[in-house]
Simulated assay, not measured.
Amino acid sequence: MNEDAIRLHSVSRRYGAGDSEVTALDQVSLAVPQGTFTAVMGPSGSGKSTLLQCAAGLDRPTSGSVVVGGTDLTRLSETRLTLLRRERIGFVFQSFNLLPSLTAEQNVALPLRLARRRPSRARVREVLEQVGLGDRARHRPTELSGGQQQRVALARALITRPEVLFGDEPTGALDTHTGREVLNLLRAMVDAEGRTVVMVTHDPVAASYADRVVFLVDGRIESDLAGARADDIATRMTKLEAAPC
């Protein structure tokens, strides 16, 4: 039986105060079982990125709790929260965020160096092989295609063996073919290695790679779909975007 990798309980996130206060998340409760792939979708401004940031410990909720692997993030100091993100959580974003002066293997090893841990060359090569870039270890970002750069970013996220991998539009800057390659890698990590992946996306095809799609509207979970096809997801999104405010 799967345990939950992530649990959000009555999470709200508000910005500003008084008349200018904005509620980005409103009493959101969500459980993500270990070894599953979850996609988060919703209209623009629905709170998708805020949900991801709170679940990953990048932002603190105004109220409610976020538990990752049994640890309540809302109770941690900033120092302990930083350590947890560094050691137990991986991130892949739409922008690759690679350092142009470093080779692929140096970019991959960077999280370990920042944690003052000596990176094993064998481990670095292992994750580069895992994403299909074993022969590009000494190439710099300018010598790699966009898809290859995103795979380096994925390898960098995997180097610490994170409990959960978060992706914020990880295929948004890629062409269709390359994006599918990255999605197949994420899917394989869940199926073959039992990793947990949570991904924000606007693309119904990308979301169809997930086990479950969670739909947000106005900071609240409106519905979800399990094992859905891309056309079913697109239909649901069209209805949500067309719904009256």
Rank of each mutant, 00 (worst) to 15 (best):
residue 126 E to T: 12
residue 146 G to M: 04
residue 58 L to A: 01
residue 105 E to Y: 11
residue 225 L to S: 02
residue 228 A to Q: 06
residue 124 V to H: 07
residue 132 G to V: 03
residue 23 T to H: 01
residue 3 E to M: 13
residue 202 H to D: 04
residue 82 T to C: 11
residue 60 R to K: 13
residue 156 R to L: 08
residue 38 T to C: 10
residue 152 V to H: 09
residue 211 D to Y: 04
residue 70 G to V: 11
residue 101 S to A: 15
residue 118 R to V: 13
residue 196 T to K: 05
residue 124 V to M: 06
residue 159 I to E: 03
residue 173 A to E: 13
residue 23 T to E: 09
residue 29 S to P: 00
residue 67 V to L: 04
residue 95 S to Y: 13
residue 216 L to A: 01
residue 231 D to L: 04
residue 105 E to T: 02
residue 182 V to P: 08
residue 116 R to T: 04
residue 127 V to F: 07
residue 113 R to E: 15
residue 187 R to N: 12
residue 1 M to K: 13
residue 133 L to D: 06
residue 144 L to H: 03
residue 143 E to Q: 15
residue 25 L to Y: 12
residue 72 D to C: 05
residue 141 P to M: 02
residue 66 V to E: 08
residue 38 T to S: 02
residue 16 G to T: 07
residue 89 I to T: 08
residue 119 P to Q: 12
residue 4 D to C: 05
residue 18 G to K: 10
residue 73 L to E: 03
residue 158 L to M: 12
residue 143 E to K: 13
residue 32 V to W: 10
residue 133 L to R: 05
residue 57 G to K: 09
residue 34 Q to F: 00
residue 58 L to N: 09
residue 115 A to W: 04
residue 143 E to T: 05
residue 154 L to H: 03
residue 150 Q to R: 07
residue 113 R to W: 04
residue 221 I to H: 03
residue 81 L to T: 07
residue 104 A to Q: 08
residue 207 A to S: 06
residue 29 S to Y: 03
residue 206 A to G: 04
residue 225 L to K: 06
residue 152 V to D: 08
residue 29 S to M: 01
residue 128 L to Q: 11
residue 121 R to F: 01
residue 114 L to C: 08
residue 169 E to N: 10
residue 240 L to T: 02
residue 223 S to A: 15
residue 35 G to P: 07
residue 109 A to L: 04
residue 215 F to L: 11
residue 244 P to Q: 04
residue 133 L to S: 12
residue 96 F to P: 04
residue 79 T to P: 00
residue 31 A to Y: 00
residue 128 L to M: 11
residue 126 E to K: 14
residue 230 A to C: 02
residue 223 S to L: 13
residue 235 T to W: 00
residue 56 A to M: 00
residue 91 F to A: 09
residue 162 P to Y: 00
residue 225 L to Q: 14
residue 198 V to S: 07
residue 42 G to A: 05
residue 98 L to T: 01
residue 48 K to W: 03
residue 154 L to V: 12
residue 231 D to N: 08
residue 153 A to N: 07
residue 142 T to W: 09
residue 234 A to L: 13
residue 183 L to C: 09
residue 46 S to E: 07
residue 6 I to G: 04
residue 194 G to M: 11
residue 232 D to K: 12
residue 147 G to N: 00
residue 76 L to H: 05
residue 79 T to W: 01
residue 125 R to D: 15
residue 153 A to V: 11
residue 172 G to C: 01
residue 179 G to N: 05
residue 34 Q to Y: 00
residue 106 Q to R: 14
residue 226 A to M: 09
residue 105 E to M: 14
residue 228 A to W: 02
residue 149 Q to W: 04
residue 12 S to F: 01
residue 243 A to F: 12
residue 152 V to S: 08
